[in-house]
């Protein structure tokens, strides 16, 4: 659906050149909700603007539905853009027009008939839950309502791709949740491919199936959300994951553990079915070990549960080894942690 192939982008301002993207490649399949996460200045905004050619690559190529964007004439490019919706952090609605007229704009640009416009806009108002706001002006709306207008406007021309540029960053957590639910509904109801850039891991966790982590103009890690959340490799990714999954033992607890002998610390990771098995119970019954659960947590990602647990086992070293082997045999990942 969208392919970005080895793109570099350099901006030159006041004689200084800034490399915003350094050889970025990614592939977004039809129906994906693809999240790009990174701190500000990582190059995510530039990256998402490549897809509708608001930014042109300095080198490399962008393909949308198999076609290289650089091959289009300006007029053809405008037609391509009509099939790519975009929503923004600050909504970018026209203050001078009503909600209805804002949503109608893409259709007006397409020179649709009044009748067609009325039908389509009414349908979108309903879909986004704004039917009673048709005659309101953006000034009279809350942030969440404004973003719904932005979404309805982006969908007006029946796009096959929706780009979300920090679409929830200006919203409170509750509103963010409802906007993300709406995006998910759009993805499922219309089979629209969605690309989201954000600095909030919770956004990725809630709706994305794929994720790419960016730092200094490069993608440092990408894959299925479940895999990246389950085993983040890069330190930046780990710190992002930790914002939604807390899996570290507080330093004060570690300090008290150091003093004791014959106790070993393990990190366990449960994915899917393993999370609902009474593994710890079996462990205690089968082996001569004392088990102390220091930390446990479960997160739902992509309708799959991801469990994290830190436990301490106290007993004979060989028995602890056997116990650890038993845990592995139950399909749970286990790693020993140095206390």
């Amino acid at each position: 659906m969208i392919e970005i192939r080895n793109v570099h982008k350099t901006f030159t301002r006041k004689g200084q050149s800034i490399e915003a993207l350094r050889g970025v490649s990614l592939n977004i399949a039809k129906g994906d909700i693809f999240g790009v996460i990174g701190y500000s200045g990582a190059g995510k905004s530039t990256l998402i603007r490549l897809v509708n050619y608001l930014e042109r690559p300095t080198s490399g190529e962008v393909f949308v539905q198999g076609e290289p964007l650089s091959g289009y004439s300006p007029a053809e490019l405008r037609q391509v853009k009509k099939k790519i919706g975009m929503i923004f952090q600050h909504f970018n609605l026209l203050e001078s027009k009503t909600v209805f007229d804002n949503i109608a704009i893409p259709l007006v640009l397409l020179k649709k008939s009044k009748q067609e416009i009325r039908e389509r806009v009414t349908e979108l108002l309903e879909f986004t839950g704004l039917s009673d706001k048709a005659a309101s002006y953006p000034k009279e709306l809350s942030g969440g309502q404004k973003q719904r207008v932005g979404i309805a406007r982006a969908l007006a021309s029946n796009p096959s791709i929706l780009l979300c540029d920090e679409a929830t960053s200006a919203l409170d957590p509750q509103t963010t949740k409802s906007i993300l639910e709406l995006l998910k509904r759009i993805n499922e109801a219309y089979n629209i491919t969605i690309m989201i850039i954000t600095h909030e891991m919770a956004v990725i966790q809630q709706i994305c199936n794929k994720v790419a982590v960016m730092e200094r103009g490069e993608i440092i890690e990408q894959g299925n959300v479940l895999d990246v959340f389950g085993s983040p490799h890069h330190p930046t990714t780990q710190s992002f994951v930790q914002t939604v999954i807390h899996n570290s033992v507080p330093q004060s607890v570690l300090n008290t553990l150091k003093a004791e002998n014959g106790r070993r610390l393990f990190k366990l990771k449960f994915v899917g079915g393993a999370a609902s098995e009474p593994i710890i119970n079996s462990l205690i019954r089968r082996f001569e070990v004392n088990v102390n659960i220091l930390f446990a947590n479960m997160t739902e990602i992509q309708q799959t549960t991801l469990g994290n647990m830190i436990l301490q086992m106290h007993g004979e070293n060989t028995v602890i080894d056997q116990a650890a082997a038993f845990i592995v045999s139950q399909g749970v990942e286990i790693t020993e942690v140095e206390a």
Partner: peptide, 10 residues
Amino acid sequence: GILEAAEAMG
């Protein structure tokens, strides 16, 4: 931002 939205709409 308004102009960017316009450009994005083609």
